[in-house]
Design a protein around this nucleic acid. Structure first.
Lengths: 133, 133
DNA sequence: ATGCTTAATTCAATTGAGTTGCAAATATCC
DNA sequence: GGATATTTGCAACTCAATTGAATTAAGCAT
């Protein structure tokens, strides 16, 4: 069993979490490094992100181009921490957003068990669709 | 519009394609480099993989840990080249396989359009489930 | 409030996947 | 066989992410 370390509340951690919670799109490490308004080392941001995922404060997802992005937990509570809805990755604006209400329906074959789900659609989002003819 | 180059049949390309077609799991660049029995440069393998994807011979998918993997086209023909079924990524054996017959059902909101889909479930596969109590 | 323990932070160095530019090799068409 | 465009190999490079070790600081107990 893994030893569960106590999580400390530091300014850097609070700021990173606030940034992710205020964003309505998924942020990459680079996005966070760029937008963070407190002095914080690159490596520290990586470790904070890992810690927040471990503490079930945020979700990590891998975009279709292989880039890791992070989103706040929205509908998660103590009982369930999952991210089973659809993620939309726009080819034009390059933004990844959650479509919380869209949950795919499917059935795993007998013998398989699910722990995580990555369900990402790549295409053109509604904002880009409406701004370009 | 992109200029479509003529694709040549070389030994390296044939061997890479054969390897992917014979495998029933998704192979990464590293897997291919390791298993390939013909002399072939690392960079060449990257370029062959890109070329095979471009030629609709194989599909590229990004695993939940961000690693690119490649699978042969199975049910694809001239009319449709897509990979809309479920991919299963086993936490134990670390293998990614296609569950061709499982296609998720969902509906995108009005205004969104889909070009690609990444639908990967991570968990324990049937083989690992049966071999460990 | 002071000290102790341990988590968090920083820095430098490193890893690993993937890319680029260019020269040499070679598949394909004539 | 020769022309031409695609492939290949090599070296160097980029970028994301990790590691180890030393320093700083949060939070608990006294």
């Amino acid at each position: 069993m893994a030893v569960t370390k106590i999580s400390r509340s530091t300014q850097a951690k609070q700021s990173v979490l606030a940034l992710i919670e205020e964003a309505n799109i998924a942020l990459s490490h680079a996005d966070i490094e760029e937008q963070l308004n407190v002095k914080c080392n690159r490596v520290t941001i990586y470790r904070i992100l890992d810690r927040l995922v471990e503490d079930d404060k945020i979700h990590k997802l891998v975009d279709m181009d292989g880039v890791s992005k992070y989103m706040a937990c929205v509908a998660c509570n103590d009982d369930h921490h999952h991210h089973h809805h659809l993620h939309f990755s726009c080819k034009q604006c390059e933004q990844v957003s959650c479509l919380h209400h869209i949950i795919p329906s499917f059935q795993l074959p007998k013998g398989y068990s699910m722990h995580e789900l990555n369900f990402t659609v790549r295409g053109i989002c509604v904002d880009c669709e409406s701004t370009s003819p």
